[in-house]
Amino acid sequence: SDGDWICPDKKCGNVNFARRTSCNRCG
């Protein structure tokens, strides 16, 4: 959805909800 972002860590790449301020997978 709008504002969702992909974790910049190449080893992670998790797609996070826009409301999250840190990655839901790797923190």
Results as ranks from 00 to 15, higher is better:
S1I: 15
S1T: 15
D2S: 14
D2I: 15
D2P: 05
D2V: 06
D2A: 11
D2C: 11
D2M: 13
G3V: 15
G3I: 11
G3R: 15
G3C: 12
G3D: 14
G3T: 15
G3F: 14
G3M: 15
G3L: 12
D4A: 08
D4P: 05
D4N: 14
D4F: 11
D4S: 14
D4K: 09
D4V: 11
D4I: 13
W5N: 01
W5L: 01
W5I: 01
W5V: 00
W5P: 03
W5S: 04
W5D: 00
I6Y: 06
I6S: 07
I6E: 05
I6T: 15
I6C: 03
I6V: 11
C7Y: 02
C7A: 03
C7T: 01
C7R: 05
C7N: 04
C7G: 02
C7W: 00
C7D: 03
C7S: 03
C7F: 01
P8V: 00
P8C: 01
P8Y: 04
P8D: 03
P8N: 02
P8A: 01
P8Q: 09
P8R: 03
P8G: 02
P8M: 05
P8K: 09
D9T: 08
D9P: 06
D9R: 08
D9F: 05
D9W: 04
D9M: 15
D9V: 10
D9Y: 06
K10L: 06
K10T: 10
K10Y: 06
K10S: 13
K10W: 10
K10P: 14
K11N: 12
K11H: 11
K11T: 13
K11A: 13
K11E: 00
K11I: 07
K11C: 05
K11L: 08
K11Q: 10
C12W: 00
C12H: 03
C12T: 04
C12Y: 01
C12M: 07
C12G: 04
C12L: 03
G13M: 10
G13P: 03
G13V: 04
G13A: 14
G13W: 04
G13R: 06
G13Y: 01
N14D: 07
N14A: 08
N14S: 07
N14L: 05
N14T: 00
N14Y: 15
N14V: 06
N14M: 07
N14W: 06
N14E: 11
N14R: 06
V15W: 08
V15S: 10
V15Q: 12
V15A: 09
V15P: 07
V15M: 09
V15F: 08
V15D: 08
V15C: 10
N16T: 04
N16R: 02
N16Q: 04
N16W: 01
N16G: 03
N16S: 01
N16E: 04
N16P: 03
N16V: 03
F17I: 10
F17H: 13
F17C: 13
F17S: 14
F17K: 14
F17R: 13
F17A: 10
F17Y: 15
F17E: 14
F17P: 12
F17V: 12
A18L: 06
A18K: 11
A18W: 07
A18P: 06
A18F: 06
A18S: 09
A18V: 08
A18Q: 09
A18D: 06
A18R: 06
A18M: 12
A18C: 00
R19D: 12
R19N: 15
R19S: 09
R19W: 09
R19F: 05
R19H: 15
R19Q: 11
R19Y: 03
R19P: 11
R19A: 12
R19T: 13
R19M: 06
R20V: 13
R20Y: 07
R20C: 08
R20L: 12
R20Q: 15
R20E: 14
R20I: 00
R20W: 12
R20K: 13
R20S: 10
T21A: 10
T21N: 14
T21E: 12
T21K: 10
T21V: 06
T21D: 09
T21Q: 13
S22F: 07
S22H: 01
S22I: 07
S22E: 13
S22A: 13
S22P: 07
S22G: 11
S22R: 12
S22T: 15
S22K: 11
S22Y: 13
S22V: 10
C23I: 04
C23T: 06
C23R: 00
C23Q: 06
C23P: 01
C23D: 06
C23H: 08
C23M: 02
C23S: 04
C23E: 07
N24M: 09
N24A: 14
N24H: 13
N24V: 12
N24T: 15
N24D: 12
N24I: 10
N24R: 12
N24F: 11
N24W: 09
R25H: 04
R25C: 07
R25F: 08
R25G: 13
R25Y: 00
R25D: 11
R25P: 03
R25N: 08
R25M: 11
R25L: 09
R25V: 11
R25E: 12
C26T: 02
C26H: 02
C26K: 01
C26N: 04
C26E: 05
C26D: 09
C26S: 03
C26V: 01
G27Q: 09
G27A: 06
G27P: 03
G27L: 02
G27W: 04
